[in-house]
Simulated scan of single mutants.
Amino acid sequence: MQWIPSEFPEGYWFIFAQGISPDALLDRLGADPIDPAVMGLQQANDYCFDEDSIIVRAGTAGGWSFAVVPGGVAGEFGVAEASKGTQAFQVYGTTNALRVFSHAENGEVTCQFISGWEGERTGVDPDRFLGGLIAVGLLLPDGRAPRDLGMDVQGAHNKMLEFASAQFSINLCLADIEIPLRARKLDY
């Protein structure tokens, strides 16, 4: 998933939910049906409603359903709702360099952090992915954040995406989202 920032420099939002269909994920996000109900990436980018609506498209990758909004963050909502009865995670980025990972299970956010601020994780189980964060170099071997020691992590954003991909065995590529996918309108 490390290709995401270069393909979507104006921002992105991806949410993944395990064991549910793309339509079920769109339902959980509160997305409304539209016509056409299936759109490719370019068609979705060209489709415009108003300032308070976006197109969200959904498909599958590696046993997970995913929803994607290139160019913007539908954002802070969705991951807890998408996780009811399962687990879900989201990664999003904005043009002002905010990059966030959130994981939820059974309706509760378990772990959330901002890229570059991994030492300030929140959620009901913020240490759940400690091993994965250490493995990709976002945290030091003792679990401390490099920032706490006055050090920066080079490529923290790409490492965050590498972590998510490895932790959940997601091998999403650009071709997976360029193809026609289920599409709906999402008000935010």
Rank of each mutant, 00 (worst) to 15 (best):
P22Y: 13
N96R: 14
A164P: 04
Q154G: 09
A166Y: 01
C111V: 06
I54E: 04
Q112L: 12
A135M: 05
E51P: 01
A164S: 15
N158T: 10
N171F: 10
L172M: 15
I179R: 15
M39D: 06
Y12I: 03
W117A: 06
A67L: 02
A67N: 06
N45C: 10
V73A: 13
L174I: 11
F163T: 06
K84Q: 12
G155A: 09
G131P: 02
D27M: 07
A88Q: 06
E120C: 05
F8E: 00
S53W: 00
D142G: 08
Q87W: 09
G72R: 01
E105S: 15
I4Q: 03
Q18P: 00
I54W: 00
W3T: 05
G119M: 00
F66C: 00
N96D: 15
R184M: 03
N171Q: 14
W13C: 08
A17V: 05
G62V: 07
Q18M: 08
Y188R: 04
V136W: 05
T60V: 08
L172F: 08
K84T: 07
A37V: 11
R184F: 11
C173I: 14
W3H: 04
G93K: 02
V100F: 04
V69L: 10
S165T: 03
I134L: 09
G123S: 06
L98K: 13
I114F: 06
D46P: 03
I170S: 07
G40H: 11
L29Q: 01
F49R: 11
E178W: 10
Y12R: 00
R57D: 06
E81D: 07
F8T: 04
A37F: 09
P70E: 08
W64D: 01
S53P: 02
F113P: 00
G30R: 10
Q112Y: 06
T86D: 09
L98V: 14
R182S: 10
M39E: 05
N158G: 12
R57P: 04
D46R: 08
F89L: 02
D148W: 15
Q154A: 13
P36A: 14
I177Q: 03
G150I: 14
G155L: 02
V73D: 10
G93E: 04
A67T: 09
A183D: 07
M39I: 09
A17M: 11
E118N: 03
E51H: 08
A58L: 04
A17S: 13
R128Y: 05
G75A: 14
E178K: 14
P36R: 14
D127C: 02
S83H: 05
S83P: 06
S83L: 08
G75F: 09
L138S: 01
I170V: 14
Q43R: 07
R144F: 05
G63V: 06
P70C: 09
